[in-house]
């Protein structure tokens, strides 16, 4: 699939925005200002962006607990997200959801999810609706390697196949579920091997490589849009931080992350690729870097000073109170 100059700039901008968002949260979390559990997506940007670059307003995605990147890639407002993570009233979910539950249904973002395996059944429904209503839309679930072992995921793969749904299951295999290795928890070599048992294509891609993800996702999405049914895409990638903020990560090898950052960083690989091919100038990318930094800076400043929800908000959005 041909990417225009604008597409390339957009892809880089979104990946950089996610990276900046997450790196900054890592710093801010350490100050104690951010409540609750925060799971960072830094290192995995090429997956969410490589997939979501193909999507438009017809399409829906379901995310995981590690959802910030998927949200940004699907077009959620960054200020609204940041405000939500700080528990503010003008956050995307009015401060009621937090990091693990950011959603923006208008953008086709069906929600981050606190329940591992919560998303796959939901996208079967979103896929069914798209099919029935003839919108041409597709539905995509992002699933971790750990989440790939959840019963709901297996059931959804089968359901999507027997109903021939326009669904794509993107397994983001970052090597760990909390502290447990995916090499141990997944009984076959690749999670993608399971696809054949559900009679759908299963493809493994290097999830650090935006172009590889983009191409493979493009095939799967095209297939789904054409009515040819679901696919499974496994992106092998890495997370740069702990499972959640505060994880000491003693299960990881020494210098593991340092080496990954030096050799397999998706942003560095992208930059190398487009500049060496003469598609974009380094200076253009530098400008995007500065803009992303300023954008996140602004989002954090606004979120910190935004008003929190008040007592009047506690009992709203339930149909009955006692």
């Amino acid at each position: 699939m041909q990417l225009s100059r604008d597409d390339l700039l957009t892809a880089y901008r979104i990946m950089r925005t996610i990276r900046e968002f997450e790196e900054r949260l890592h710093v801010e979390f350490a100050t104690g200002d951010i409540p609750g559990f925060v799971h960072l997506y830094a290192g995995e940007e090429a997956s969410g962006v490589g997939v979501c670059m193909h999507l438009d307003d017809r399409d829906r995605i379901a995310s995981t607990h590690r959802g910030h990147g998927h949200c940004i890639a699907k077009g959620c407002d960054v200020d609204g997200m940041m405000a939500e993570i700080y528990g503010r009233r003008d956050g995307l979910c009015a401060g009621k959801g937090g990091s693990m539950h950011i959603a923006d249904l208008d953008k086709g973002m069906m929600g981050a999810n606190g329940i591992v395996g919560g998303g796959p059944p939901l996208i079967c429904g979103a896929g069914l609706a798209a099919k029935q209503l003839g919108t041409g839309g597709v539905a995509i679930a992002f699933v971790g390697d750990g989440g790939s072992n959840q019963g709901t995921t297996f059931e959804s793969l089968n359901l999507a196949s027997v109903w021939n749904l326009p669904c794509i299951f993107v397994i983001e295999n970052n090597g760990y579920a909390e502290s447990t290795s995916s090499k141990w928890s997944i009984a076959c070599d690749d999670a993608a091997d399971r696809a054949s048992g559900f009679n759908m294509p299963g493809v493994v891609v290097d999830g650090h490589d935006f172009f590889a993800v983009h191409e493979a996702a493009g095939e799967a999405i095209k297939r789904a849009r054409e009515g040819a049914g679901p696919s499974l895409l496994e992106c092998k990638l890495n997370r740069y931080y702990g499972h959640f903020e505060g994880d000491a990560q003693t299960y990881r090898g020494q210098d593991e992350v340092k080496k990954l950052r030096e050799s397999r960083d998706c942003l560095a690989l992208f930059r190398e690729n487009v500049t060496s091919a003469g598609l974009l100038e380094g200076a253009e990318l530098d400008a995007i870097d500065r803009e992303a930094l300023a954008q996140i800076d602004g989002a954090v400043t606004k979120a910190k000073t935004a008003p929190p929800p008040t007592a009047a908000d506690l009992l709203t959005d339930v149909y009955v109170t006692y």
Partner: peptide, 20 residues
């Protein structure tokens, strides 16, 4: 249970978590 010891199959410490 999940990660009741932790570190299973990794290059690092076994019993890395003892649960979250």
């Amino acid at each position: 249970g999940e990660d009741v010891a932790g570190g299973l199959g990794t290059d690092g410490e076994r019993d890395a978590w003892g649960g979250p």
